[in-house]
Structures are given as structure tokens and as C-alpha cells.
Amino acid sequence: MIGGGGSPEKYQTLPGGSYTPPNGDRGSKILAPLKAEGARGVTIAVASTVVVFGLLVFAILNSSGWPQIKEAFFDPEVFWDSLGKIMARFGRNVFIFVVAEVFVLILALIIAVTRSLRGPVFTPLRILAAAYTDLFRAVPTILVILLFGFGAPALQIKGVPHSDLFWAIVALVLVYSAYVAEVYRAGIQSVHPSQVASARALGLSRGKTMRFVVVPQAVRRVLPPLLNDFIGLQKDSALIAVLGYTEALREAQIISAANFDFTPFVALALIYIVITIPEARFVDWLVARDQRRLQAVGGV
């Protein structure tokens, strides 16, 4: 019976000598110096923060144009009046980007895996996949939406939907799948070749190796860029407005034009901030949890 190996607390020395603590600190580096400096450091940090931001605020408040800016961008009456309506319309944006994201994540993975296929017989597929990503990253998103949203119904083909919602989601899915496919591809390529070798050595087929070993690791490695693209998609959901469909941004524009006031846009910006920040923290948490596992196991 073999005795147990080294104790679990034993830190691993990677070849090259770099040191990885078992629970890597992926937290914010902004406050890191504070922890090092102690109480005095904290006082200085607080003081300098108050001074700098205080100066900024003072400068803004006392600029000559401030009263007009305040009225045009931060009008409380317009704000409260528009917030409810914009939030109601925002539900449409949510529908668009949630549905689109689901399809994007799937389609992009298919494209990325297709591009990674080896073997000469797959050449036409690889060419198609590469051409797809080139094309849809090249054409501006708004153009794609216009082309599909106005062009498809204009063809007057029986059975082709006329719905703005449908074509906007289709356009967004096509465009964003091109970007996300490249993100996946980077993730796939970042998985160490020995992982593939280990899986193939067990006798797993290429397909199963992809499915069980490569893709799960690849996706975990690219969560931050995936979130980036999702945030971009959330904002681009507003582009459906060019088709005449009233979503949150268009609603803000309508109220803004009616009142000759920009405050509705500030309200919308706040809504976006409120949803985006938790998403970012959630992904940070996911990444921190997986980083530990994925990074600590490299060299043996």
C-alpha cells in the first residue's frame, strides 16, 4: 500500500520557479497597495481620493455652462417621467439580446470548431467558416440589420417573416457569431496541446476530445472576452430602432425630442450600468473560481 504523497498544502513549483498560491488573488488590484501599507496608507488614500474627486466636482459645478447642462441632461422631472417608460421598453431589448445570445453562443461554437477541423476533406467547410467570420466582422452591424430588416421583406417571398424583431435578431446573431467564433477559436488554441495528446492517448476520438476536453476548457478560458461581446450585444440591441421598432433607446429619443431634453438618455445609461456591473462581477467570480483550477495545473 502506497503511503499518501505530499501534504495537500504543498505548493507546486512550476518549472521556471514561479509561485502560485492555491487561492490566487484575482481581486481588484486598485486597493492592493492599501493592504500593504496599513492604517497610514488608508488615510492617505482616502484623503487623496476626496481631494481629487472634490476638485473635479467643484470644477464642473462652477463651469459657466453647468446650469444648462444640468437642465438638459439631469432634469429630475423629465428623469422620473421617462424612467418608467424607458424601463418598460427595455424589456424588449432584454428579449432581443437574451434570445440572440443563446443562438450566438451555439452558432459561434459550431463555426469555431469547424475552423479547427483537421483533415483535407474538411477544407471547403473551413473556407466557409473563415469567409463567414471575415464577412460579418467586416460589414457594420447597422448595415446588416438594415439589409435584412428592409431587404428580406422586400423580396416578397412567401413564408419569409416580415417581423422587425425576427430579422433584427437574425442579423445580430449572424454578426456576433462571427466575433464570438474568433473568441472561441482563441480559447481552443490556448488549451495546451498535451491536453489533446492525453485525451487522444486514451483512445478518445477527435470529436470526443473536442467535446469533453478541449471545448470545456476553452470556454472557461475565454469568459471575460465572451462577456465583452455580450455587453456589446446588449447595446447593439438598440439598433433594431432603425427598422422602426421602438425599444428603449428609441423611446428615450422620442421623449427627448418631445421635451427638447437629453435626460432620458441619462436614464437609459443608468439602466445599462445597473445591469452591466453585476454581470461583470459575476463573470469575475466565475473566472476566479475556474482560474484556480485551470491555472494551478500546468506543470506537474
Binding site: H192, S194, S198, Q217, V297
Partner: peptide, 8 residues
């Protein structure tokens, strides 16, 4: 020699 196990 290294990178054997599947970390996930």
C-alpha cells in the same frame, strides 16, 4: 511529463 490531468 506534465499537463496530464484534465483540470476541469
Amino acid at each position: 511529463q506534465a499537463f496530464n490531468l484534465f483540470p476541469h
